[in-house]
Design a binder for these strands. Structure first.
Length: 480
RNA sequence: CGGGGCGUAGCGCAGCCUGGUAGCGCACCUGCCUUGGGCGCAGGGGGUCGCAAGUUCAAAUCUUGCCGCCCCGACCA
């Protein structure tokens, strides 16, 4: 019998997304805690693979991991003016502990800049202590009004990098180095093309001088901010008195950065590649790359098939689905929904002919392969699938990116867009980095996603809102 | 924070209007049978009906209060 069906993308994109995540057994709402989710093994395994990719790159660029307290004294959040304003609406606060009201409440960290500021002040005395390059893998909590699995949950997992530098140039280099790492993992591991860019002043992180981000386009055509890297200037250095003695003997505040990617990336992964049959995972992030489904009828067939199945599975590193009492058909659906890149089918006919059937998750193509070549063919297929998924996503990004040269044009395009229809677009237009311009975009429920770091279009032009000169087109879109 | 919906077996739901032995499908267990895209048959186990108070001889059902979750809009990785 059919399991709960997956809502087709074309019918209702948001419902499709939720169905894919749940049917793919990645996560489910933790119905006992508002806005939180349970990340299940098939989802957490993807997170572990992603973590490894990022962590290796952070280590390779000189960062070390630390762990900071979950609770932050409430007064800490208030030390940086913009920071407190940005975060106070979404804080969860602990006011009672040990059965007694606390003298000073603790907030559950929404991010750790403030606590880092405190410890940086203790640890940094001299320019010789710099740069200080740290990262933390942690959970954080932001009391969101509206939540969606992975994309926005009250509690989420992430990494937050925190670094301190002697000069602004060094800090900015760090910010961009990390942005490159984020883009590298997104494109080459997640097969998710991104646009690197700077956030506008009104979209930047609360407390930063400037924020950079990678923006991805989902199959709905909506934008997803997939990672951010912030130039904090000396804002937190001043707020927490993080001073160091320069080589010339003077005192200066450190220049800090912070940067993060979260479990939101898993949502992005799902919305980049999956289809109406369920989850599609790029091979590099598939916890199980191939499953072998044995097919047999009589006992003597079973013995033969299983023997060959285990031999081949061992050779290629596949998992044999030898569960009893489930027909092959049920198994095919099971693994398909869970996004396994390749399913191998082995039955009596294949045993007799010395072949095995290889089926690709993304294209659905099925072909018999000589058993002697299966190892090579499988690796080949996984490699091809990885690059094909990227190409497909890149093509969609290109075909759904349009130029606009007037505010009316932008409005006309974006007013057609709804999240359910999944007909989103990236609109490239000349717009000034000015809060008034951001506000204008909000009128049609869109935002300036970023000012690309690399101009792939026609260079300078006149702002379609103010008429002033700006040096390149920005990305305007509706977003998650 | 506004609008809507929901809470009954592990999951999805019916029953409620009109109070009277708690039901269906899937899943699960046992046996037989089947197996190249969600097999079939037979038998079986599983529930303080979200919580609390009230009305009543009697409450899943009526009344009141509370709690929680989900979905749709304004803030956000």
């Amino acid at each position: 019998m059919a399991q709960s069906p997956i809502t087709p993308r074309g019918e209702d994109f948001a419902a499709w997304y939720q169905d894919v995540v749940i049917q793919g057994d990645m996560a489910e709402p933790a119905e006992i805690v508002k806005g939180c989710m349970v990340i299940k093994p098939n989802g957490y395994a993807v997170w572990e693979l992603l973590q490894r990719e990022f962590d290796d790159r952070f280590k390779a660029t000189g960062h070390q991991n630390i762990y900071l307290p979950l609770l932050i004294p409430q007064s800490f959040l208030q030390k940086e003016a913009e920071h407190v304003e940005g975060f106070s609406p979404e804080l969860a606060v602990v006011t009672i502990a040990g059965g007694k009201p606390l003298e000073e409440p603790y907030v559950i960290r929404p991010t750790s800049e403030t606590i880092v500021g405190h410890f940086f002040a203790k640890w940094i005395q001299s320019w010789r202590d710099l740069p200080l390059l740290l990262n933390q893998w942690a959970n954080v909590m932001r009391w969101e009004l509206r939540t969606r699995l992975f994309l926005r949950t009250t509690e989420f997992l992430w990494q937050e990098g925190h670094t301190a530098h002697a000069t602004h140039d060094d800090a900015l280099d760090e910010v961009l180095r990390i942005l490159d790492i984020y883009a590298d993992v997104a494109e080459n591991v997640m097969a998710m093309p991104v646009i690197k860019g700077r956030k506008t002043q009104s979209e930047k992180f609360a407390g930063a001088v400037s924020s950079f981000a990678i923006e991805a386009m989902m199959q709905s055509g909506l934008a997803l901010q997939a990672g951010t890297s912030h130039d904090l200037g000396q804002n937190f250095g001043r707020a927490f008195n993080v001073q160091f003695q320069t080589s010339e003997g003077t005192l200066d505040y450190v220049w800090q950065t912070s940067w993060g990617v979260s479990t939101r990336l898993i949502g992005g992964l799902v919305m980049s590649h999956s289809d109406d049959k369920g989850l599609v995972l790029p091979p590099k992030l598939a916890p199980i790359k191939a499953v072998l489904v044995p097919i047999y009828r009589k006992d003597e067939e079973k013995a033969q098939v299983l023997e060959t199945a285990h031999r081949i599975a061992k050779e290629v590193g596949a998992k044999v689905d030898d569960r009893e009492g489930q027909t092959p058909g049920a198994k095919f659906f099971h693994w398909e929904r869970r996004g396994v890149p390749v399913v191998l089918e082995l039955g009596p006919r294949d045993v007799a002919s010395g072949k095995i059937v290889l089926k690709r998750r993304d294209t659905g193509s099925k072909e018999p392969v000589p058993q002697s070549e299966i190892n090579c063919m499988l690796n080949d297929t996984l490699d091809r699938m990885q690059t094909d998924l990227y190409k497909k996503a890149k093509d969609q990004l290109k075909s759904r990116t349009v130029l606009a040269n007037s505010i009316e044009e932008v409005e006309g395009i974006l007013n057609e867009v709804t999240a359910e229809k999944g007909n989103g677009k990236f609109v490239m237009a000349h717009v000034k980095d000015d809060p008034a311009c951001d506000a204008r975009m909000k009128e049609f429920k869109a935002t300036i996603r970023c000012i690309p770091t690399q101009d792939e279009y026609d260079g300078p032009g006149k702002c379609i809102v103010t008429g002033e000169n700006v040096d390149r087109r920005v990305v305007i879109a509706k977003a998650y």
